[in-house]
Each structure stands twice: as structure tokens, then as C-alpha cells.
Write a protein that binds this DNA or RNA. Structure first.
Length: 566
RNA sequence: UGCCCUGUGGUGUAAUUGGCAACACGUCUGACUCUGGAUCAGAAGACUUCAGGUUCGAGCCCUGACGGGGCAGCCA
């Protein structure tokens, strides 16, 4: 299934898919002279999300495997929506993913002059004209899905008049919307995109890179193929909604007689329990349902990064998901598998108690402290071990003790025994409660012969639980994230506002979790497994030496919780 | 009502181009375990949307239905 070969470490060669088959065929026929050149063309009007990551991995993965090149190109053809902040975040995210565009950070706006010349060429060929109709009038004449459109009264202007008008459009002699340049194709085409599409519109506003140099801006359909052509792209990979635009992509390039890449469309990624449209994500940010584009509950690349996902996991996920042409809804479980799989191998284990219950070990000398050895990662012996302090007062997880346990519960119960991870077996002798009848403390005894690693006792217990020493534990804030929405497809119901489907429990903050002292030296971005709880990452925005903040990346699988739900 | 694309276990993808439907996730057993994790062994789960046709043989080819998606921005 996997081919071996020449690829960088982060991007192992990928499974075959229909696009790679097309490329294999092109290599065989020498269609592009053995060249492969792909690109990722974001519009800088939002942050990248996991769907973009799929596209980046696809495009870069292909270039990487075929010894080709990969361009980052900002499709900045609409000055009213685009901002430098987005350019910066996009570059950062792609770099983080490890997709290497070398020195090729390109901008469509750098090609405006060339595009203009090509537009003049089309006008001279009688294939483009300046139209005075308003947007509404153009819409009115476009026809419908079932009826042909009608030709504009300005459609048959002379070449000279069109040239003159187009030049004056560029010079700024007209207001926004006063005139457009349209391709002269076929108002009766069953493909609406071919009914004399607009090539240039007048927009008097400041462009993030061009300033006020231009007041006419190319539309996507006109510009995109030209950008690909200029850069020598071989395979212009885009999502399904552009399929109907391909005839237009081809038409422009053919009429111009310039280098002609091949457009190939694939189905965009949909993930369950989230939304992926930039518009909706923008709304979540602007209306403050989340704390910015990198709020760890968002499906953006920056949010996954902040939450503790690794680029490897995301890359692997995009491989698992594959590439095809039918729309699909990918189960978030696939993504969670990818990150668990990665972190299981690489994350250091530590102990932390989120919901503490105090235990006093009555037969352990008060004031004594033992340094116990704990393995950093059972999956990777090279990660070594560390010392953790043990004393007569510890905290365990409240949920690891039950007075009236259900069948099959093998943790602490009154009179029962349990192993403290890397320490001793203890026995619960007494349950101390407050006025309300809530358990507030346990008195236990420990068995000195059962120290971990000594093998001096044959005693076996059903369960092992995590703990921290009360007087050594550090405090930290822990943020527990859950899916952002309560339903699989928040945007399935067109009648219902997706905001109503937000999960009210998508974030739970634990202000004072107790964590083992070795975490003192952890740095923003460090990833850990809190044993038996999940994977956590030091938040790089809000964490500090004074106050550590951990984000939960993903829980561990828990077959006990699962079997108990039944 | 037009045009384009697309229908394979719960989910996502495969099927060497016509040869008894495979992989991953998920689910469920069992083993092991000082993480109810991981690992290991195994199981269940698909008459490949439907109906015709061609063929010795069809998920792949043909015809017709039906379902899903996209398209009427001077957005991309």
C-alpha cells in the first residue's frame, strides 16, 4: 500500500489515490516533461483549518513524492476582505505542518500587470468587452438554471471602444460597479459560468500589498488559471465546487494560448461535531463563542497546535482519510486516533490529580519522604525515568474511590486495596465525611512489602491508580476541552442556526489541579500524558512560571466508562 | 425543470482495469498488564442504491430509475 522512497521524514510516501494515478499516467506519457509542480492558493481572509491542512498535505505530499515543487500562493484578488494578519498566520501554519515551499511565497497581486495585458489581448481578439450594466442588470440577463440568458446591449462594442473603456477603468475614471470587463462566451450555455463571466470589477479600496495602485481587480475565474500558468503549475488541485468552473479555466487559457495546467477537483474534508466554513468560523470568533481563531476547540490549524496536536498526527490523519470525489463526513474518532497514536509513542507520562480526594496513610511516618522511580514512557525506554516524592499525605482522584461500587469496579473501596502507581499497595481503613455526608478524606494503611519494583511481595490487586504527594504537589490550571457541538452535523439543518447547537460543556476549567513536582520545569508547548486521564499540553498563550496552564489534547480511551454507559 | 459530479460494512478509503469485496478507524470478545492506556489474538458487521441488459463471470461495461452534492457573486 505504501511505496517506499525518497521523502522527508514528516511526509512518508502516501497511499495511492485518483489524483496520484493521473500523475502516474502523466509521468508515463511525459505530459509535463517529467515535472510535477503543485500549489496551495489560500485567500488571506481567515485562518487555515483542518480542511486546508488536507489540501496542503495533498499538494505538498505529491510534490515531495514526485520530486516536484510546491508553491504557496496567496490568492489576494479581493482587497476588501484580505488582511496581513491572515497572511502571517497562514505562513506560520504551513511551516508548522512542514510543507516546504522553499522561497516561494507568491502573491497573485504580483501578476496584476501581466493579467491586465492578457485581458487586453482578449479584448483585441474580440473575446472580452466592457459592460455598463449594473450587477443587478447582469443578474437579470443571466437567465436561470433552466433558461438561457440574454446578451447585454453593450456586448458588441468595437474593439477600439472596449480598449479605451478598459484603460479608463484602470485609470480610475469610474466608480465601483459602474463598469465591468466580461468574457464574451455564450449567454445560452447550460453551464452558467460560461454566460459571459465577469473578469474585472472596479474596487476603489486599499490592497494589503498593492495599496491604491489598482482599482480594477480580477475575479477568481479569470485570475486563477493565469496564476497557475505563470508559475508553471502542472496539476492545479482544488475542491469540488470548482468543477463547473473548469471549462472556464480551460477556455481562458486556450483563448490566450498560454501554458495550460490541468485542474483536478477532490472532495473537501468534513469533520463530525464541528463546522468548517470560514464564514461560520469567523462568526464564532467575532461573536466570541470561542476565544479567538486559536481557541483549542476550533478546527483551525493554530487551534490544534495550541491544543497539543502534532503536525505528524495531522499529516497522518489526512493520509488515513484519503482523497476522493464523493462528499463525506469524516468521524472525529479518526482524528483522535491519529493524535493518540502519535502521543502514545512520544509523550512523557506524569501524574496529575484533577479532582482531589485526600488520603492519610496512617502507618507511614509523618514527615518522611521517599523518592520513587517512575518510568517516563513505557513505549520508549530511551526516555528514561524520574523520581517522584511520596509521603503520608497524598491526593487521589475522587472518582477512584467508591463507597458503593458497581460490579466490576476495581479501584479503592472501603476495606479494599489498590496499588498506587509506582508506590505501594494501600488499604482503605476509614472513610471520613463532612456534615453533608460527602466523603472528604480517607484513612489508609500501606503495605511496606509492596513497594514498586522490589518484587518482595506477591500480593496482587485489581487496580492501580495515580496520585500526588500532598505537600509536594504543584497547582496548575487544567482546561478540559470537548467537542464544540452537540451534533454530528451542526450545519445540516438549514433552518436552524448552528450557534444553537454549541456544546455548553465544550470547555471545563479546573483552576487548581494537583500535579507532580517534576512538571515545574515544563515549557509552553510541552506535551504530557497525565496517566489514566489523557494527553495534555502546556498552553503557550496563558501559561507562565507562576501559573501553569494545561490544555487537554485528547482523553485516553476508557473502556470502563464505555462499558458502564450500557 | 437545465448542466456537472457522485453513490462500496457504523465512518473513511481499496479492489492489479471483468475473476468469488480488502484496509484503517469504530464496535464486541479474550489474553496480558503496576495506566480500565498501550500491546497481542480473535469476532461481528456489505446481497457494492435499485431495476434491467451484455458476459461463462459485473462493484467495475451498457440502459433506465432513485438518492446525495454543486452551479443563477462584480466571493473564492
Amino acid at each position: 500500500m505504501l511505496e517506499s522512497g525518497n521523502s522527508s521524514e514528516n511526509f512518508p510516501s502516501k497511499p495511492k489515490n485518483f489524483i496520484r494515478e493521473i500523475i502516474d499516467e502523466d509521468m508515463k506519457t511525459n505530459k509535463w516533461g517529467g515535472r510535477v509542480h503543485t500549489r496551495f492558493p489560500p485567500e488571506p481572509n481567515g485562518y487555515l483549518h483542518i480542511g486546508h491542512a488536507k489540501s496542503i498535505c495533498l499538494n505538498f505530499g505529491i510534490a515531495n513524492d514526485y520530486n516536484g515543487k510546491f508553491n504557496l500562493r496567496f490568492d489576494d484578488t479581493n482587497p476588501s476582505k484580505e488582511e496581513q494578519e491572515y497572511v502571517d498566520s497562514i505562513i506560520e501554519d504551513i511551516r508548522w505542518l512542514g510543507a516546504d515551499f522553499e522561497d516561494r511565497i507568491l502573491f497573485a497581486s504580483d501578476y496584476f500587470e501581466q493579467m491586465y495585458e492578457w485581458a487586453v489581448k482578449l479584448i483585441k481578439k474580440g473575446k472580452a468587452y466592457v459592460d455598463d450594466l449594473s450587477a443587478d442588470q447582469i443578474r437579470g440577463l443571466r437567465g436561470t438554471l433552466t433558461e438561457a440568458g440574454k446578451e447585454s446591449p453593450f456586448r458588441n462594442r468595437t474593439v477600439e471602444e472596449n480598449l479605451d473603456l478598459f484603460e479608463r477603468m484602470r485609470k480610475g475614471e469610474f466608480e465601483n460597479g459602474e463598469k465591468v470587463l466580461r468574457a464574451k462566451i455564450d449567454m445560452a450555455s447550460p453551464n452558467i459560468n460560461l454566460r459571459d463571466p465577469v473578469m474585472y470589477r472596479i474596487v476603489h479600496s486599499e490592497h494589503h500589498r498593492q495599496g491604491t495602485k489598482w482599482c480594477i481587480y480580477p475575479t477568481y475565474d479569470w485570475a486563477h488559471g493565469l496564476e497557475d500558468s505563470i508559475e508553471g503549475i502542472t496539476h492545479s488541485i482544488c475542491t469540488l465546487e470548482f468543477e463547473n468552473h473548469r471549462p472556464l479555466y480551460d477556455w481562458f487559457l486556450d483563448e490566450l494560448g498560454i501554458y495550460h495546467p490541468q485542474q483536478i477537483e477532490f472532495a473537501r474534508l468534513n469533520l463530525s461535531y464541528t463546522v468548517m466554513s470560514k464564514r461560520k468560523l469567523l462568526r464564532l470568533v467575532q461573536e466570541k463563542y470561542v476565544d479567538g481563531w486559536d481557541d483549542p476547540r476550533m478546527p483551525t490549524v493554530s487551534a490544534f497546535r495550541r491544543r497539543g496536536y502534532t503536525p505528524e498526527a495531522i499529516i497522518n490523519f489526512t493520509d488515513i482519510v484519503g482523497v476522493a470525489k464523493r462528499d463525506a463526513m469524516t468521524d472525529i474518532a479518526l482524528l483522535e486516533y491519529a493524535i493518540r497514536d502519535d502521543l502514545n509513542k512520544h509523550a512523557q507520562r506524569v501524574m496529575a490529580v484533577l479532582d482531589p480526594l485526600k488520603i492519610v496513610i496512617t502507618n507511614y511516618p509523618a514527615g518522611a519522604v521517599e523518592e520513587l522511580e517512575a518510568i517516563n514512557n513505557p513505549e520508549d525506554p530511551s526516555m528514561g525515568s524520574r523520581k517522584i516524592p511520596f509521603s503520608n499525605e497524598i491526593y487521589i482522584e475522587k472518582s477512584d474511590f467508591m463507597e458503593n461500587p458497581p460490579k466490576g469496579f476495581h479501584r479503592l473501596v472501603p476495606g479494599g486495596e489498590v496499588r498506587l502507581r509506582y508506590a505501594y499497595i494501600i488499604k482503605c481503613e476509614e472513610v471520613i465525611k463532612n456534615d453533608k455526608g460527602e466523603t472528604i478524606e480517607l484513612r489508609c494503611t500501606f503495605d511496606a512489602d509492596t513497594k514498586s519494583g522490589t518484587g518482595t511481595s506477591n500480593k496482587k490487586v485489581k487496580g492501580t491508580i495515580h496520585w500526588v504527594s500532598a505537600k509536594h504537589a504543584l497547582n496548575a490550571e487544567v482546561r478540559l476541552y470537548d467537542r464544540l457541538f452537540t451534533v454530528e452535523e451542526p450545519d445540516a439543518d438549514k433552518e436552524k442556526d448552528f450557534i444553537e447547537l454549541l456544546n455548553p460543556d465544550s470547555l471545563k476549567i479546573i483552576p487548581k489541579a494537583m500535579i507532580e513536582p517534576s512538571l515545574k520545569s515544563s515549557r509552553p508547548g510541552d506535551r504530557f500524558q497525565f496517566e489514566r486521564l489523557g494527553y495534555f499540553c502546556v498552553d503557550y498563550k496563558n501559561s507562565s512560571d507562576e501559573k501553569l496552564v494545561f490544555n487537554r489534547t485528547v482523553t485516553l480511551k476508557d473502556s470502563w466508562v464505555k462499558s458502564n454507559k450500557k
